[in-house]
Design a protein around this nucleic acid. Sequence first.
DNA 1: CGGGATATTGAGGGATGTCAAGGTAGGTGG
DNA 2: CCACCTACCTTGACATCCCTCAATATCCCG
Lengths: 262, 262
Amino acid sequence: MFTAILEAPVRSVTLLRSLPPVERDAPAPQKALCSNCHLREVCLPCGMDHADVGRLDSLTFSRRRLKSGASLYRAGDRFEFIYAVRSGTFKTSLDLADGREQVSGFFLGGELMGLDGVAHGRHASSATALEDADVCAIPYTRLTELSAANPGMQHVVSRLMSREIVREHSLMMLLGSMNAEERLAAFLVNLSQRLKARGYSSSEFHLRMSRAEIGSYLGMKLETVSRTFSAFQHQGLLEVDKRHIRIADMGGLTRTLDMRVH
Amino acid sequence: MFTAILEAPVRSVTLLRSLPPVERDAPAPQKALCSNCHLREVCLPCGMDHADVGRLDSLTFSRRRLKSGASLYRAGDRFEFIYAVRSGTFKTSLDLADGREQVSGFFLGGELMGLDGVAHGRHASSATALEDADVCAIPYTRLTELSAANPGMQHVVSRLMSREIVREHSLMMLLGSMNAEERLAAFLVNLSQRLKARGYSSSEFHLRMSRAEIGSYLGMKLETVSRTFSAFQHQGLLEVDKRHIRIADMGGLTRTLDMRVH
DNA sequence: CGGGATATTGAGGGATGTCAAGGTAGGTGG
DNA sequence: CCACCTACCTTGACATCCCTCAATATCCCG
């Protein structure tokens, strides 16, 4: 299901961080090429043949750097770009009428944000960096122009959108039919697999999001998230220290899901 | 937001029903043309210019008729077609590990089903007719071939997928942050608007789905759905007689949503 | 007419939300 | 360097919403 990336993506991230800071929102001078990006196996080019990836290079995506907490786009902004995460973690969220937010997703390196903007030409959700981060800005109209001439590429783009639909399907299932323990287990197992596919440890990691953000995403209150973490720790499934997580019993965690008592 | 269709779609539906029944699953002899379909303003051609709609006609979608309860496709089936509802109502659902189902959507005339199949070449969900129904089967590869040559058409297809993402966003919000009354109110208001856009009454209609199906969709038990209907009736918002619904106070119903106490 | 599916309603219990208090970590300024 | 402040996390006590189980009513279809 997931392609494991064996090369560690950490090296280039460190490199980026050590560069002198650029002016905020100035057009980044660096241009990113898909063909030699360390994330190409999990990102936009995934599934494309060599020739199509080469064509992608002609778009020379501009890069944008964000500080932790900065927003990449906001709901209602004009839709021009989709964004691929190069480094860091993002959340996407919808603004509720009463001012609270509903988190609709978390995004890791290589994942794409903003596809919901195609529908009405405006972003339907907001994207916020959960740590210092780096994205490729992919001009949507140029991408469609390019894929019009290349059936293979067009299919890849459609598939990405469809994948987003499927992703939300499973979240709906989660929100509609699982109890608190099942929700958190599903969240952790999913995150673990995605980290593994990016060359990180699947059993030990640092959460970039708060309990409140996890809760919003999973449809539960932050106190319940906290209590459920504690419960898993008592059951010997996890070791939890604030945001540092070690999965002690992956089998037990996945079994929590299969039970599906409710 | 929705384009009201003034011509009543009822006439042609009645016509179809009076035709002699065809063999089940035999390639239907009737061919449907988008350019003079009564649903063209809410269906696939929505947003296309006249020339592109004409090009759609070249695909000559075959029609498929289903009895109430019959399934159009099942999760895991090979993905070849997307389906546009011509008449009747459908539900889409995911099969849970324990045999129960999670309803992921209800579909009315002109709405498209099956876009989640693009991701992996297999349908990710199942579609079932909730009453005798009629669909256009749109061959996906031929649609993409056609849209490769026509930028306008390609964009329309992308937009449809994006719209599906946005639709699921709002459902996530519903499941993640609303209580039982808000959920049912949101469901009814949404259904009312969609019926209105199709030329039906927005204040009085017949539900095609059971309490259990509504509950599955909204993430609550059928008893809670039933109780909430009764509560709305006592509050003077609705008149309910089994599946026959009359919205007595649309303003009050939408206010239930804005309150968003929880 | 009978049987199965569906809907309504009640009683009771349990999972999760709410409110509150206290602890810890990290950042900032004196 | 330390004190303070803020944001975040944990835990407890209590409240409440919704689920579970059960009985009954109603409708639809054979």
